Simulated assay, not measured.
Amino acid sequence: MAGSVPPVADEREGLLKYLEQQRHVLRIAAYGLTDEQARAVPSRSSLSVGGLVKHVADTEDGWIDIVLQLPQKEPTKQDYVDGFRLLESETLEGALARYDEVARRTEEVIAGIADLGQPVPIPKNVPWFPKDVDAWSVRWVLLHLIEETARHAGHADIVREHIDGATAFPLMAAAEGWPESPWMKPWKPEAQSV
């Protein structure tokens, strides 16, 4: 995927393409990382690139459950904490594969909804959800997923830069095979010492 969303035909395609783009830039922050690096917490926060990938996948999947009005699992405090960490038993490859599955599910579910204005009842057991609103729309949920994914993609960019100095465009150039130019050099992993 290129650095920008291509022209879109309509609202549905636009929302899905912008969500896809934000997923892509989050994945770019993970490009070339080892599992150990993906678990690293190199800044003052407790965020890691692998943990952010897990969290965003879990969040998107949960919102699609809400759209489908499926029963919500009540997470424990440990579930919440572990949702932001790539555990020793987990791999970055596995987290990214799950994120791909979540993306496919989202696209399938949204394709099956005729009207993006369809109401999505607001769960009443979440303290930060408004109590004076009965429903959002599917459109609102997609916009929220774009917002949430973009926020965490930005977090992942900062964490990644703390890990090895890599920044978004050189990583994107490396991941997408852009040719080197006088002003853009694709990221390359540091030489491993023997």
Rank of each mutant, 00 (worst) to 15 (best):
M1A: 05
M1S: 01
S4V: 03
V8R: 12
E11F: 03
E13T: 00
G14V: 07
E20A: 08
Q21G: 01
L26Q: 03
G32N: 09
T34D: 05
E36A: 15
A40T: 12
V41K: 02
S46A: 13
S48M: 09
V49P: 00
V49W: 05
G51Q: 04
L52T: 14
K54C: 03
V56Q: 06
A57M: 08
A57E: 06
T59V: 12
G62M: 08
D65Q: 00
D65Y: 03
D65W: 01
L70E: 13
P71T: 04
T76V: 14
D79A: 00
Y80H: 08
V81N: 07
G83T: 00
F84Y: 03
L87D: 11
E88K: 11
S89E: 12
S89W: 05
T91A: 10
E93V: 13
G94K: 09
A95M: 09
A95L: 09
L96K: 13
Y99C: 12
D100S: 14
D100P: 13
E101I: 09
E101G: 12
E101M: 11
R104N: 03
R105P: 10
E107Y: 07
E108M: 11
E108D: 12
V109F: 03
I113E: 04
A114Q: 09
L116K: 00
L116M: 03
G117A: 09
G117T: 07
G117I: 02
Q118G: 08
P121V: 02
N125D: 15
N125W: 10
P127A: 11
P130K: 05
K131P: 12
D132S: 06
V133I: 08
V133Y: 10
D134E: 15
D134M: 03
A135R: 04
W136M: 14
V138M: 04
R139I: 10
R139H: 14
W140F: 06
V141T: 08
L142G: 01
L145Y: 00
E148S: 10
E148G: 07
T149L: 05
H152L: 11
G154A: 03
A156I: 11
A156F: 02
D157Q: 02
V159Y: 07
R160V: 15
E161M: 07
H162R: 06
H162P: 09
H162C: 11
I163D: 14
G165N: 10
A166K: 07
T167C: 07
A168W: 15
L171R: 08
A173C: 01
A174Q: 07
G177D: 07
P179N: 10
S181K: 07
K185C: 12
K188C: 14
P189R: 13
P189G: 10
A191K: 14
Q192C: 15
Q192T: 15
